[in-house]
Design a binder for these strands. Structure first.
Lengths: 369, 369
DNA sequence: CACTGCGATGTAAACGTTTACAATTATATA
DNA sequence: TATATAATTGTAAACGTTTACATCGCAGTG
């Protein structure tokens, strides 16, 4: 690998001049400039980013940790981060936590050792306390999808409670009374907040909160599938279900489809995040917009501002959540329920659990006003 | 930021000893070891990865360029790369090309300047020639989804032609004769190879190749939507469609759904890639497995081996493509076509294009053996 | 012509590690 | 006790940049 010295020698100038040309950091004679550029081309020379970092004390690297890049939610986030980093002349270092405590810590420590200009951290398993430690230590560290009051100005967040409230409220306004909730089994803020939103919406309409209608699992397609099976196996009537996120909702809908339960005619579904996936489902999924791209961008810009002690530019915007109406929600339909009474015995290949569910539906229908 | 010198001073040893402890590179007395570790904890010290890179001449960074991390296909790939990099003690630097020539070049140059241990490059717009230049220059650079014969042993690839052949062959074996193709408008190898697979399958069964049944667009959801509209607007009969990838297929299916054309009863659909998305669609999408995770992992391992001149370990495995049967394909059904004759006039809100399509369907049905 | 000021360039000291080599200390052996 | 050997530790020179400071040459001025 050629170094700046080789270029200097070939161009017949000093290393300082080469550095000046390559960084356009101060005026250089046209003559020297062309000589340097020529030598650079000839040697295929690229400044060594590591050496530069060492000398400049600025790594021009933004580090980001997410659970899993292949999760579409994080995919969008990372995309936005990379774009924002690029606009700042930075590169993006990506680490995955993969839902494991050990990996999450390793990811953060890794970013730490790279002395990143900014760190965007999404942590599922790390305690608030430990996270606070890191926040104190790294002034340009920004938390995403976490709320730690002591560092509120560095927490990029949406109002999850409001979002879920909007979703469930919409179901209620459509006429639903028995509304199940499929939550995330991770015990972090956004899971709790969305659950709180669900509760609050029920409460606001004096509807009872039934633990039998609530399940939780991993916030993945598989988690959604398991959760749906669990919920149906309980044989308790519900006409709608609010789901922690779109991915889980997709899993749930796949199970309903498989069991011959129609969405939205038999059960209305609402998700959260408004991923591309939501538009692809059949029927398209009503959901809550989660401005994840804006958040990723804002996080990167905030981190960079903090790094440069630019506390003016550093304020976070407000991130809007909004209900998006698609075709996965309709009013609960009495005629549908009645139709079903003809087929209360298990259909061919239908499991006991599903049969129980049908019976429950029919029962609930009879007891309706 | 504390340095290794601060730790050495606090622990009462030399910097070399600190380095030895922190790298477990050679034996150190238990006494010194604990003193160093204690000092490290006290100062919250982390070795500076940049300085280390400089001294060691190994960056422990794997660089990867993809078009767009939020594309589920690349999301899976990057996930696998990160995982493999982590297993090698490396970090992952991610750059996006975003389908722009300029950005793609910038991405590669960026990785170059970081002197990555390995580079995994997915390039859409860069010419073979230019890519060859880079390959010559960087011995541990690996191409993904590109085939350049001069560097075949560093091209991570599937047999796209075979994959698409399998897909179309399956449609034909189901009884389909009028099979449309929705391709990618990017002029790179895999697009061409998949198209070739489509052609080959038709040819193998002596079916005519009709340009009127072929469209191409961006390989995205939106591209799939546009392509579907274009195809339907032509008013030409087809009973099945093979699509460049699952994402486009999702867009196409959304359009069919919107127009009231049933999948698979009216039109069978087959995708490519076997993304999570394929399982979420309704009906679930038949597709071709694309072992993208294996490929990402293999690419990272190959790059790292090449970096260490370990040409033994460096051979690439064979990546299998396989047809995955799901419910988006059935035999073209005559009764269905006949049913439709009753509704040949445009339905309420139905566009002219769709009506033309229905008429074409009915016509094709009549002329059947 | 001497002097001032300025623009272009060069020199060399950082930046924070690793590691070859030298030096020191401890242990075993005669 | 002296010596050989092994184990541990320390010193200092890299690694490839940036940049403060010094130097040089030259145009403009008195």
């Amino acid at each position: 690998m050629p170094t700046i010295r080789d270029v200097a020698k070939l161009a017949g100038v000093s290393v300082a001049t080469v550095s000046r040309v390559l960084n356009s950091s101060s005026k250089v004679s046209e003559q020297a400039r062309t000589a340097v550029l020529k030598a650079q081309r000839e040697l295929d020379f690229h400044l060594n980013a590591n050496a530069r970092t060492l000398a400049r004390k600025d790594s021009e690297i933004i580090g980001v940790t997410v659970s899993d890049v292949s999760d579409p939610y994080f995919g969008c986030m990372v995309r936005a981060c990379e774009n924002a980093a690029h606009a700042l002349g930075c590169s993006l270092l990506v680490c995955q936590g993969l839902h494991e405590a050990e990996r999450e810590i390793a990811a953060i420590e890794n970013l730490l050792s790279h002395h990143c200009r900014g760190m965007i951290v999404h942590a599922l398993t790390i305690s608030d306390e430990k996270l606070c430690d890191y926040m104190r230590r790294v002034p340009s560290m920004v938390l995403i999808n976490r709320q730690i009051d002591a560092f509120a100005e560095r927490c990029v967040n949406i109002d999850n409670e409001k979002g879920e409230f909007l979703a469930v409220n919409q179901l209620i306004n459509c006429g639903h009374r028995a509304i199940a909730y499929v939550g995330s089994s991770h015990s972090i803020a956004d899971a709790k907040q969305r659950l709180a939103g669900y509760r609050k919406a029920l409460q606001a309409h004096q509807l009872p909160l039934s633990p039998a209608l609530m399940v939780a699992d991993e916030p993945s397609l598989e988690g959604g599938i398991r959760a749906a099976r669990e919920l149906l196996s309980r044989g308790i009537y519900f006409s709608a279900v609010a789901v922690y996120n779109d991915t889980m909702a997709a899993g749930l809908m796949a199970v309903l489809l498989e069991k011959g339960i129609a969405v939205p005619q038999d059960i209305s579904v609402v998700g959260f995040d408004d991923l591309m996936l939501a538009r692809c489902l059949n029927p398209p999924l009503s959901t809550i917009t989660n401005p994840v791209e804006e958040m990723g961008e804002a996080a990167v810009r905030l981190a960079s501002s903090l790094y440069h002690h630019d506390h003016q530019a550093a304020a976070l915007p407000n991130f809007e959540v909004r209900f998006v109406q698609r075709r996965s929600i309709v009013a609960p339909s009495a005629t549908r329920w009645l139709d079903r009474q003809n087929s209360l015995t298990p259909l061919d290949g239908e499991s006991k659990a599903t049969a129980a569910f049908r019976r429950a539906q029919a029962l609930a229908d009879k007891s309706r006003p």
